[in-house]
C-alpha cells in the first residue's frame, strides 16, 4: 500500500550546507498493517511523514501510496492525518473546525453534521463543541486533531505522536480506538517516541536513526520468541529463598530483585523452584520490552 524505494531527502541551508535527513530508506507497508515508526529526536521521522504526505519531494527515490505519487493519491482520495503539532486557527470553534474539515474531507454537505456528531461523541468532545480552539487544553486539542482524522472512512491513516498530551485514560482509549480502526484494507502508520505504545498497537515497528532505517521489528515474531533481557522479580514473602535459587539476583528494593538475562526455560524452572520452596511471587517481568531492547541495539549501532 505504502512504499518507500531508496528514498533520500537532503535539506539545504541558506549557505548551501547539505543536511541529510533521510538516507536510502526502503520500506513497504502492507494493506491491513499497523506500522510503528520509532526513532530518537531528529532521526528523520517527521521528514518521512512529510514525504509520505507529499508535503515535500524526496531528493532521490520514490514514495508511493497505492502505486501513485502521494499528492496524487491524497488529492484523489484523502488520508487521515494527525500531525504532531495540532495546528488549527485559534479563533475557530471546535464544532465549526470539524465542520470545515468534514467539507474538505469530501463529506456530503447533508452528512456533515452527522459525521461531526459521531467523532465528537467518539472522542468525548461534546462539552467542548462551542469552545474556541485557543481555549482547549493540550489534551483536548489533540482529541480535536484526532477527531478530524476520523471524519471520513480513510484507507490510509497517519498518526504522528498521537498520544502526545493525552491523559492516561485517553491514552488507553486511543489504543482501543486504533484497535477498532484495524481493517484488512486499511493501513495505519504511527510515529511515536513511546515504545510501550507502539509495542501494544503495532504489527511491525520500523526503527530509524540518523535518517537510516536501522531495522524493522516484527512484533508478533519477537513477542513469540520472548525477550532476552534482565528481569525484575517481586516477591511478597519467602524472600530468604531467593538468593539460594537465584545466586546472581541483585536486591533492588523492598522485596525486589534484578535478575540478569537468561533463557526463558531456565527462568521458568527457577521460578517453579522458588514457588515450591514457599515463596509467594508477585511478578517477574522483563526490565524492558522486546521492542525497547531492539531499539537500544538499533540506535546504539
Amino acid at each position: 500500500m505504502i512504499e518507500f524505494s531508496a528514498v533520500s531527502k537532503t535539506y539545504r541551508s541558506l549557505l548551501g550546507k547539505r543536511v541529510p535527513a533521510v538516507i536510502d530508506f526502503t520500506l513497504a507497508v502492507r494493506e491491513g498493517e499497523v506500522l510503528g515508526l520509532a526513532g530518537p529526536n531528529g532521526a528523520g521521522k517527521s521528514t518521512l511523514i512529510g514525504l509520505l504526505l507529499g508535503y515535500m519531494a524526496p531528493t532521490s527515490g520514490v514514495v508511493s501510496i497505492d502505486g501513485e505519487r502521494p499528492r496524487t493519491y491524497i488529492e484523489r482520495y484523502g488520508i487521515g492525518y494527525l500531525s504532531e503539532l495540532v495546528a488549527i486557527p485559534p479563533s475557530w470553534r471546535t464544532e465549526n473546525a470539524l465542520r470545515r474539515f468534514a467539507l474538505l474531507a469530501g463529506v456530503e454537505p447533508s452528512a456533515v453534521q452527522r459525521e461531526v456528531d459521531r467523532v465528537v461523541d467518539q472522542l468525548g468532545l461534546d462539552e467542548h463543541r462551542k469552545k474556541l480552539i485557543k481555549q482547549l487544553s493540550k489534551g483536548n486539542l489533540q482529541r480535536v486533531g484526532l477527531a478530524q482524522t476520523l471524519l471520513c472512512d480513510e484507507r490510509v491513516i497517519i498518526l504522528d505522536e498521537p498520544t502526545h498530551g493525552l491523559d492516561p485514560m485517553w491514552t488507553q482509549r486511543f489504543r482501543d480506538l486504533v484497535a477498532s480502526l484495524r481493517r484488512p484494507d486499511r493501513t495505519i502508520v504511527i510515529a511515536s517516541h513511546n515504545l510501550d505504545e507502539l509495542q501494544r498497537i503495532s504489527d511491525r515497528v520500523a526503527i530509524i536513526d540518523h535518517g537510516r532505517l536501522q531495522r524493522v521489528v516484527d512484533l508478533k515474531a519477537t513477542n513469540a520468541g520472548g525477550v532476552q533481557a534482565p528481569y525484575r522479580l517481586l516477591v511478597a514473602s519467602g524472600i530468604e529463598h531467593v538468593p539460594a535459587v537465584f545466586p546472581d539476583a541483585v536486591p533492588s528494593g523492598v522485596h525486589e530483585f534484578n535478575l540478569p538475562e537468561r533463557p526463558l526455560e531456565q527462568l521458568n524452572a527457577q521460578i517453579s523452584e522458588l514457588i515450591s520452596l514457599g515463596t509467594l511471587v508477585v511478578s517477574v517481568a522483563p526490565m524492558h520490552t522486546a521492542l525497547e531492547q531492539q531499539f537500544r541495539e538499533a540506535v546504539a549501532q
Binding site: 488529492e75 484523489r76 484523502g78 488520508i79 492525518y81 500531525s83 503539532l85 486557527p89 474538505l104 478530524q148
Partner: peptide, 14 residues
Amino acid sequence: AMGYVRFLFAKPLN
C-alpha cells in the same frame, strides 16, 4: 507559517 496546511492538504484537496 502557522502549520494549518498540515490538516488542510491531507484532505482530497488541490
